[in-house]
Every structure is written in structure tokens, then in C-alpha cells.
Design a protein around this nucleic acid. Structure first.
Lengths: 202, 202
DNA sequence: TAGATTGTTAATCGATTAACAATC
DNA sequence: TAGATTGTTAATCGATTAACAATC
């Protein structure tokens, strides 16, 4: 939960820095997100002493610290598996690059797509995964295939040596404990929205 | 938080029902998600008495109850704003229809796209939003436009009369209190993944 | 020094879990 | 009736908030 809040602080600080704001207090930061100032201080203090008593936090310093804590100061090398609508959307999504996620390879199992070049990157065959992961020093596999194919793709990614899987397929996949799995599950968001809309109607 | 867990129970129960499992205990259900059985019972009891003492829960009955609670037994009418990569991916995403989200209209401000027909649905001009929302009885607006355009689109959707906004743009938008806003923020998921991968490396 | 704001300890609150009477 | 499992109350735990000494 703290990590999610750190993400939020980070984006806010980046904006403040752009706007030329030099320092900010936990009070001001908290007000922007309807949080308690003690919570903001505690979240930050957990990772170190970044503030100056009587002054607040140096915007640029704190932004850089959070960036480092979140691992946003380094690049992660990613293979995108599946170049259908979703895969294509993710490939063109700017946010990926902005967060340091560099799509270093694309694979698909559709013969019609293999060999096609997008932005200078050639789509490779799914069977080439082990070679691609190794030669491109890839750490993360992004699963953008239909639900039925997700587990199989995840297994192949892990066998090929990725350390983490970002799963966009609308299905849960199982991974060993030493592999980090992050699901981006649209269904849960839709159900959440549906629930709250339904409540409002009553 | 309970709603998120209900979503998970729902999917599990749907599977169990397909597999012909007639009843399930809170114990068994909890075991599947590494939860406490008391928590499962409490989550369910919050909405009514669905279980049978000494037996457990009737899979089909509980599935139907949760479906109703989550509002998944009815249809929500949706307008998709933006038919770029992301919009197109969302349009073809089966999960939408599966959860009862019926894309009843598509709008875009790109003249090259307006008038194009996808699966029998004609892409309309953004300016037509008020008419489209009214004539199609639309309740939810899905924002799939670039970050810079998101707030403007949200404002127009609200003015046109939608009750909820599902925002996929990588930017926070502000909405009045009576409009339900659900952000699907990929950045936070990426930062979460990045953080945990970074920790593992230390 | 006076005013402000941090980092942190103690108090509070809410959510999770254990325990058990009710009951199938 | 005996065994099992619910719904719910009471106990525990963790996260949030208030308060304040430290210090810029």
C-alpha cells in the first residue's frame, strides 16, 4: 500500500518540480490527496530521512529519492508476447517507456505477423523466446495473449529465464515463488464500477 | 476491499459451477486464495445469509447472489471515446461484454476515423456526444484518449449526462461527487513491479 | 530566539482472525 | 443424535492518526 502511495507522491513531485516549486511540506502534500500529513511523513521516513525540520522536503531531492526507491532510475528490458490489439496498444503506450520499461523484443505465434517490423523491431516467433530473452538480456515478460494461452506463455517465459511477468490476459496464471507476477486485471475494475453504480441506483 | 474479494469469489464459483461442484464451504473457498475462512464468511454475511449451516454454500446460489450484488446480472451501456490503439483493443476485449458492459457507441475526433464502421458500429464525431449519450441511453463513458485530452473528454462526457467514467488515460481526471470515477492506471502497476524487482535485486 | 515542520512514539481506529452458539 | 459448518461476537493485529520532542 505504501508503494502505491509513493507512486502518487512521485508523480505529484515531478509536476511540482516542473512548476518550479522548490520545497513542500508533508501538510501540503497530504492536502492534495486527502491524506493525513503524519501518514505522508511516515511513508517517506520508512525509506530514510529526506526532509528538513522546519522547512519541509526539497522537491527535487525527494522526487529523485522516490524515483530511486521505485526503481524508476533504471531501465527494465521487456519482451512483449502477443501483438494483437492489446499488444499493439501496449507497444504504442508511451507510459511504458516513461517508466523505464524498454520493449526490446516482440514475439507472436501468428505466422502472418512473424517477420513484420514495427518501429524497427522485428516480430519473432514464439518458439524463439529462449534465444530472444538471452540475447536481449530481458528481465520482464508482458503477456498480451488470449486467456486460454496465458498460462502456456507464462511457463515458456519463465523457462526462458524472465524474472517477472506482467499479465494482461483476463486469467490468473501460476508462477514459482521466485518469479514476480503482476496482474493487470480489468475484470476486477469493471466489477468494482458495476457494484458502485448498482449501489447508487438503490 | 470486500468488493475486490467478491469479484475473486465470483470467478471461482463460476468455475466450480461449470465443474459440477454443488456446494463449497468457507474453508475450501478460503484455501484457494490463502484467506481466512472467517473472512470469507464475514464478506458473504455482510450482504445476507447465503449459506447452510453444517453444509456450506450452494455454488450456483452463491454465484448468482454475488453476480446480483456486483451488478453483473444487468447490462451497462457504454460509449467508448477514442479509437486509437487502446480504444480498439478495449473494443475487441471480450471481458467487457462478459461483464455486461455493452459498447453501444464509439466517438473520436479524428476525421479519418469518423464514419468508419467497426463490427456494425459507426464511429461518430466527438461533438455528437450529447446526442449519442441521450439516444443510446448511455450510463458509462470509457476514456481511451491521450493524457492531455482526458480531462476535456471527461468534462464533455459528464455534460452529456454519463453517470460514471472509466479512465484509461495515464492521467488523473477530476469529476463531480455524483459521478463515479474508476481509474485504470497502468503506471501504478508498472511502478509496483519496478519497486519489487528492485528490492529483489538488493 | 520564535516559528515551522520533521521523524517518531503513543493512542486510536478499522480490519482480520479466533472462538463459539446456533442450526443444518 | 453426532458431525459439520454457518453467522456473529469478542480478541487480536496492523495501519492510520494525534501528539510532541528534536531541530532547522
Amino acid at each position: 500500500m505504501t508503494v502505491r502511495r509513493l507512486s502518487v507522491y512521485f508523480r505529484c513531485l515531478a509536476h511540482l518540480e516542473e512548476d518550479g516549486v522548490k520545497t513542500i511540506s508533508s501538510q501540503e502534500l497530504a492536502a492534495r490527496f486527502h491524506l493525513n500529513s503524519a501518514q505522508v511523513r511516515k511513508d517517506l521516513a520508512y525509506f530514510g530521512e529526506f526532509g528538513i525540520r522546519g522547512i519541509g522536503y526539497d522537491t527535487a531531492v525527494l522526487r529523485a529519492e522516490i524515483q530511486r526507491i521505485l526503481g524508476l532510475d533504471r531501465e527494465w528490458r521487456v519482451v512483449l508476447v502477443g501483438f494483437g490489439n492489446l499488444g499493439s496498444a501496449l507497444f504504442h503506450y508511451r507510459g511504458f517507456a516513461r517508466q523505464g520499461f524498454r520493449i526490446a523484443a516482440i514475439v507472436d505465434d501468428d505466422a502472418a505477423k512473424i517477420g513484420r517490423s514495427v518501429n524497427g523491431l522485428v516480430i519473432e516467433a514464439l518458439a524463439e523466446l529462449p534465444r530472444v530473452v538471452k540475447s536481449q538480456a530481458i528481465q520482464i515478460g508482458v503477456v498480451a495473449v488470449p486467456a486460454e494461452a496465458a498460462q502456456g506463455v507464462a511457463d515458456r517465459l519463465i523457462a526462458a529465464g524472465v524474472r517477472a511477468i506482467l499479465n494482461f490476459a483476463p486469467s490468473r496464471v501460476k508462477v514459482p515463488k521466485d518469479v514476480r507476477l503482476q496482474n493487470v486485471d480489468l475484470s476486477i475494475e469493471l466489477e468494482n464500477l458495476s457494484f458502485h453504480l448498482g449501489q447508487g441506483a438503490r
